[in-house]
Amino acid sequence: MIRIAVAAAGPDIEPVYAKAAGPGYLALPSPYSESPGDLLGRLNGGPVPGVLVMDSRHDADLCLALAGRFHAEHPETVLLLVTDQPEALGLRAMRAGIRDLVDPTADLAQVQQVLGDAVRQAERAAARQAKTEAKTPTGRVITVVASKGGVGKTTLTTNVAVALAQAVPHSTVIVDLDLQFGDVATALNLSPEYFLPDALESVASGDTIALKTRLTLHETGLYVLPAPADPAAADNVTSAQISQLLQVLAREFAYVVVDTSPGLADHTLGALDHTTDPLLLTALSVPALSGLRKIVDTLSVLQMFTERYHVVVNHSDAADGVSLRDVDQTLGVPVGTSIPSSKNAPASINIGVPLMQAHPRDPLVKALSSLVNLLLPEGVRLDARGRVRTKGRSRS
């Protein structure tokens, strides 16, 4: 049963709404703040009502401010506003998420009709919510983390994502969480129309179809969600939004590959909280290795260090006084993949064509093919040149 809550109902309308709502009626006093939590606290832990009616005649500004926040936090609740100023408040009410304005002189039949329409809208919203919750995330979230910049993080991320997309068509989306200076789109030679903030708006509205239209399709079949075009926009992106985004994408794609900024920013921690396969990247240098050790320790303390972690060492053939054995001893976890230096990598980055796409004989391709094979489903494998082999047959 959809519950109908009426807040601040004046004595002239309270009996009408109580009768029209029937057994689902809940009477709430006047709101005293813009916080939905303050109003819902009057329910003593009860569920959020499907319909909320606010009598705005006492304080219209407070009701509209509350409605705006309520709609943002509980978009499934249908909001109605009782007002004797429809022309003055109409536009503001629409922007606040109010579904309908009700005249305080409306009789019982009119109120029943308005509430009936609202209840049907709430039932449809509840059904969509139940369907979404029933569809639990099944995709793997692969997040690449490094303590320092310049170790090849975006190169690794884009090549892994391209390899997965080529091996399993329509399976993979890459998300650029280096919010201020991310260059995944540049590394893939893309000029996107939409960026991360656009996708977050679709997620907040619960519109999965709109979310997919905000993704840019790469020629390999990889879907791309670039970082904000304006670095200042990063300030408006929250960790909670990132968490919600990754949960939605993991329901829609088999693989969600995440590039991050160096270190452990809040957004990176938000991503790691939903990560199934962390790729911990380092180079053979003391600063990079020392920083990654701090990351491993931090994730262990936060209990975010999953069993599927994978340590990747880039430029593993560098002779700079640090060896793979030093990596094992410093991190306390074994190296999973060693990637030798690639003479083609700089040009690949500059022209925006990943090595997994265009250079099958490159040593990086051979090393990453082994890593990607750990992520692919049974029966699908990459050979040493990054070509897909399915049940004993290969395809380019």
Rank of each mutant, 00 (worst) to 15 (best):
G45Y: 00
A265K: 12
S285C: 10
L190M: 13
D103K: 04
A72Y: 08
Q241G: 00
P226K: 02
E201V: 14
G270W: 14
D107V: 10
E307R: 12
V372M: 05
L217W: 05
Q244I: 08
T83N: 07
P278H: 02
P340H: 03
R120E: 15
V313G: 02
A199F: 13
H71Y: 10
L289E: 06
P23D: 04
L115P: 00
D198C: 13
S338F: 15
F195N: 01
G37R: 12
S56G: 13
P354W: 11
V380C: 00
L269N: 13
V168Q: 09
K294W: 05
I339C: 08
D317N: 06
L115Y: 03
S396Y: 11
K148Q: 07
N350T: 12
N373W: 14
L215H: 12
A250D: 05
V380M: 08
P104T: 05
P278R: 09
A187K: 11
K19E: 09
I4C: 02
V256M: 06
I351A: 04
R381H: 05
D207E: 07
D12E: 15
Q244D: 15
S338Q: 11
G139V: 10
D12C: 00
A283I: 10
A72M: 08
G37D: 12
D259S: 09
L299N: 08
T220C: 14
D38W: 01
A127M: 09
G46S: 09
S348M: 01
A358Y: 03
G37M: 00
E123D: 02
L382R: 01
I174A: 11
A93H: 11
D59P: 09
S342W: 14
S205N: 00
T238H: 00
A254F: 07
K135M: 15
L79E: 04
V327A: 01
G379H: 12
T132L: 15
L190D: 14
R124V: 13
G139H: 02
L246W: 03
T238N: 02
A60T: 12
D235Q: 06
T275Y: 09
V168I: 11
M304D: 03
T132V: 13
T172P: 07
Q329P: 08
A161Q: 03
P137Q: 13
Y255A: 05
A126C: 05
L382F: 04
R214D: 13
A367D: 01
T282V: 03
A347D: 15
P334L: 14
